[in-house]
Simulated scan of single mutants.
Amino acid sequence: MIRSMQLTDLPDVLALLHWMDAAPEREVFAPGARDVPELQAECEDSTCLVQAGEDGVSAYCAIAPFRDGLVLEGPLSEAGPVGPLLRRALAHAEGLPVYAFCSRENTPVREALEAAGLTPMHSTAFYTASLSDFAEATVPDGYALTNLLPITEYRALYRAAEDTWAGRLDWTPEQYDAHFARDDVKLVALTRDGKPAAFAELEFHPEEGRAEVTYLAVHPAERGQKLGRTLLSLAASEARRYPELRSLRVRAHDHMKAARTLYSHAGLKHCSSIVTYMLEGEEEA
């Protein structure tokens, strides 16, 4: 039976999340919470559905606000088809575009998404290396290191380096300040003659023992100076200040051939790939 998730279902849904965690090929976009109170709070803004029977919950799928539309959480199922649960969740889209993310190796979910009308847009490859694999970083001659950029300079470099990050350009100064005031976020930037030349943005995940480079940008006029490898070393040096962190992970979309080459040459190993799907929204008349 497919029905709305109830408070008594939370332990079963948590068990599904831990089941997903046990194997990279099961990965889908899902709640980040891993205890009952956090999961309850995280699901408050979502429409959460479960497949339930006499033995409890066997599958989970939710739909939540995201960007200009909605995002699917799941579907997650240890056994059995996920198509009916997925279609029930999509019935709540109300004409908005719907995004979904899952491991490239997650064949059952990918087949269900495509059967439901979602189209693969691109894939994102993840690479990782131990922090100990990186040499201690040095700042190149002529450049200066900083952990803070004015929002106008950040936006200018952001816009020049990668036009697909458009969401960051909509941040207000208050959002920008709040983001970089977080304890788990760090900016490592290089300037030359007082102007930003490149930056790497880090997020720390101590519970997983890793630091993640969420964005790496080099101004087009500064390319060819090996600043990308310098930024990776600087990011690793920053992460090594936190003893609970052991690895560095980076990402690159499938069109970012230069970034993929950089990561391979820097010794990072491919560890997983995530496929982004989208169901187009209904255009207003």
Rank of each mutant, 00 (worst) to 15 (best):
A137P: 01
A137K: 01
A137V: 02
T138F: 07
V139M: 02
V139C: 10
A144T: 07
L149F: 02
P150V: 03
I151E: 15
I151D: 15
T152M: 12
T152C: 11
E153A: 13
A156P: 09
L157T: 00
L157R: 03
Y158R: 14
R159V: 07
A160G: 14
T164D: 10
W165R: 13
A166N: 12
R168T: 15
D170C: 15
P173S: 08
P173I: 11
Y176L: 05
Y176I: 08
D177V: 13
R182V: 05
D183Y: 12
D184F: 08
D184A: 13
K186H: 10
K186L: 15
L187W: 05
T191K: 05
R192M: 07
D193N: 14
K195L: 07
K195C: 03
K195G: 03
P196T: 02
P196L: 05
A197M: 04
A197H: 02
A197D: 03
A197K: 01
A198D: 00
F199C: 02
H205Y: 15
H205D: 15
H205E: 14
P206K: 09
P206G: 09
P206L: 05
P206T: 04
E207P: 12
R210I: 12
E212I: 05
L216Q: 03
L216D: 00
A217R: 11
G224Q: 04
G224K: 08
G224F: 00
L227R: 01
R229E: 08
T230S: 01
L232E: 03
S233Y: 08
L234I: 08
L234G: 03
A236M: 04
S237Y: 04
S237V: 08
